[in-house]
Amino acid sequence: MGHKYDPGDARRRRLLSRRLHEIEERLETVERRADRLENTLQGVVREATSVSLGGPCRCGESLLIVRRQTIYCPQCQYRRTI
Rank of each mutant, 00 (worst) to 15 (best):
M1Q: 14
M1D: 14
M1F: 11
H3T: 12
H3L: 13
H3Q: 15
K4P: 04
D6W: 06
G8H: 08
G8R: 04
G8E: 09
D9T: 11
D9V: 09
A10K: 12
R11M: 09
R12K: 06
R14E: 14
L15K: 11
L15C: 02
S17D: 12
S17P: 05
S17A: 09
S17E: 14
R18D: 13
R18N: 08
R18F: 08
R18S: 11
R19G: 01
R19K: 10
R19A: 14
R19E: 11
L20K: 13
L20Y: 10
E22P: 05
I23R: 08
I23P: 01
E25Y: 02
E25R: 12
E25S: 05
R26F: 07
R26I: 04
L27A: 13
L27D: 05
L27Q: 11
E28Q: 05
T29E: 12
T29L: 04
T29N: 01
E31M: 02
E31I: 01
R32N: 08
A34P: 00
D35G: 00
D35Q: 12
R36C: 09
R36H: 11
L37R: 02
L37D: 09
N39Y: 00
N39T: 11
T40G: 07
T40R: 14
L41C: 03
L41R: 09
Q42A: 02
Q42I: 05
Q42S: 05
Q42T: 06
G43R: 03
G43C: 02
V45F: 06
V45P: 04
R46L: 08
R46Q: 06
A48G: 04
T49C: 02
T49L: 00
S50L: 10
S50E: 15
S50H: 10
S52G: 03
L53D: 08
G54L: 06
G54V: 01
P56V: 12
C57G: 09
C57E: 13
C57I: 08
C57S: 10
R58A: 15
R58G: 15
R58T: 13
E61A: 15
E61K: 14
S62C: 00
L63Q: 12
L63N: 08
L63P: 03
L63I: 04
L63M: 08
L64D: 09
L64A: 10
V66R: 10
R67N: 03
R68H: 05
Q69T: 05
Q69M: 01
I71M: 12
Y72M: 07
C73A: 07
C73K: 04
Q75V: 07
Q75N: 15
Q75F: 05
C76F: 06
C76T: 07
Q77A: 06
Y78C: 03
Y78D: 00
R80G: 01
T81L: 02
T81M: 00
I82T: 07
I82Y: 10
I82R: 15
